[in-house]
């Protein structure tokens, strides 16, 4: 009986025949995630600054942007980009960007980048807000320029606070990237669906799950290690358990959105 059940859950022949396909898919997943999370990171700081600006001309659109991209499912955003672009092709062609939206790969990168920028922007904003105001005041009193205050006083501390939530966001975007399969991209999930459609063998989903799991676990461990290394100078080093639970315990609006790693 147990042998039967094991054979049902894991089928090694399957891996033999289709393992290469999974690896090809993994490459696409890695490309999509790497490009969109880096681009999203680049967008996040300007976005956070706009959000914190006293000028409503900057802060209002930034708030709308963040609210939209965090308040609607990523799948819906992806459909909007992919099928929406198809609908307005004449316009996109006339401004010379249709080649970009024609490609499912670029559509995914576009949608994921805009989405993760919203999440990362809020993380950066929360992290900057966590730096005590007195420090900025003190730096101003010392006559430091705005750039130097940002570069040498605020950001180093803020990035340390942002490190863990940014790691969670990276894991989140890796998981979310599986949606690319729905708009024909043969990423890891896409290849998995392809093999399943061909074989109806359920094990392929479990293999894919193990690959995703290995990646997200590796990143989560890497982040723990980085955090330990970077926060060594702090007097109170948080024990690992507390590090996991602190975002949950902080009952502030800024920190909302860090805890869960998933988005739809």
């Amino acid at each position: 009986m147990w042998h039967d059940l094991a054979g049902f859950v894991f089928n090694l022949d399957l891996l033999n025949n289709y393992g290469m396909r999974l690896l090809q898919g993994l490459r696409i997943t890695a490309e999509v995630v790497a490009i969109s999370s880096v681009l999203g990171f680049l967008l996040s700081y300007p976005l956070a600054c706009a959000r914190m600006s006293d000028n409503p001309l900057f802060s209002a659109p930034a708030l709308a942007y963040v609210t939209f991209f965090r308040g609607t499912p990523l799948l819906c955003q992806l459909y909007l980009v992919y099928y929406g672009a198809g609908e307005v092709r004449p316009f996109l062609t006339s401004i010379g960007v249709w080649w970009f939206f024609r490609d499912a790969f670029y559509c995914c990168i576009f949608a994921f980048t805009l989405n993760t920028a919203a999440y990362q922007g809020e993380i950066i904003r929360g992290a900057i807000a966590a730096v005590p105001k007195e420090q900025v005041a003190a730096a101003q009193a010392l006559g430091l320029s705005r750039y130097r205050i940002a570069r040498h006083v605020v950001l180093p501390q803020a990035m340390l606070v942002a490190l863990r939530p940014l790691g969670n966001e990276l894991i989140s975007i890796i998981k979310a990237s599986a949606l690319a399969a729905i708009v024909t991209l043969l990423d890891l999930m896409g290849q998995t669906r392809f093999v399943f459609a061909r074989t109806f063998d359920f094990s392929i989903y479990l293999y894919a799950a193990l690959i995703y799991l290995a990646i997200t676990e590796a990143i989560s461990r890497l982040w723990n290690w980085m955090e330990r290394g970077l926060s060594r100078h702090l007097v109170v080093t948080a024990p690992p358990v507390a590090a996991v639970i602190t975002p949950v315990m902080r009952n502030t609006v800024e920190n909302r959105g860090y805890v869960g790693q998933a988005r739809a």
Partner: peptide
């Protein structure tokens, strides 16, 4: 899908979840 997968090895094959989505993407020029 099986037909083109077996015979059109040199083409770029795109597979869609729904039955009319390929036609929608044909109309849009993808």
């Amino acid at each position: 899908a099986n037909y083109i997968d077996q015979r059109y090895k040199a083409s770029e094959i795109k597979l869609y979840p729904g039955g009319d989505e390929p036609f929608i993407d044909l109309a849009s020029g993808r």
